[in-house]
Design a binder for these strands. Structure first.
Length: 174
DNA sequence: ACCCCGATCGTA
DNA sequence: ACGATCGGGGTT
């Protein structure tokens, strides 16, 4: 697939990747949707980042090469999907919080837990290379939507950083 | 071995 | 505003 996002796309500063992922098309199995909302989690100096206290079995993939999935289990019942960013060795990731499904049927998945539940994303999908995987990847898109930056949702530390990015057009709602 | 709490969500 | 629900990771 020629228009698949490459490792070079993800191997950049997390804020850049989080902003540029908006409007891109995520493919997961037979599902496809436009990414509408992201959050950046960046390195050991970001207290809300899972890697803030160093490498553990759960967050290990964040320390590896960019372009891999990072899926974790939270609140005893939800999964959250991230894409690993930055150079290998520097832990960063973009949380995918919103996806406007267009295939197989239109539906706005707003919220990381709902998104994973609907698509069937679990820890089985952790540490997959999105630059190589057959049915799980992100496509380039001509869309360059206007967005706004806000504090990240559901965190207790690092709220002063405006690292959540949302496509502005709420007419996107279905 | 134990205990606290979390990158959520649906209901009240 | 709050409870459900349980794994991770820091602490003992």
């Amino acid at each position: 697939m020629a228009d698949r996002l490459s490792r070079d796309f993800f191997s950049r500063p997390t804020l850049t990747v989080a902003q540029e992922l908006l409007g891109k098309i995520m493919i997961f199995g037979t599902s496809a949707g436009i990414i509408t909302e992201t959050e950046a989690y960046i390195g050991q100096d970001d207290p809300a980042c899972h890697a803030a206290r160093g490498k553990t079995p759960r967050n290990a993939v964040m320390f590896g090469p960019a372009g891999f999935s990072y899926v974790y289990f939270i609140y005893g019942m939800y999964h959250c999907l991230n894409f690993v960013t930055e150079e290998e060795g520097f832990p960063g990731a973009v949380l995918i919080r919103g996806l406007m499904l267009i295939e197989p049927s239109p539906l706005h998945l707003n919220g990381p837990g709902k998104l994973c539940r609907h698509l069937g994303i679990t820890r089985d999908h952790n540490a997959l290379d999105l630059t190589e995987h057959g049915t799980f990847y992100v496509k380039e898109s001509p869309i360059c939507p206007p967005y706004e930056a806000t504090p990240r949702i559901g965190i207790n530390k690092g709220q002063e950083k405006l690292w959540r990015f949302v496509i502005k057009n709420q007419a996107f709602e279905i």
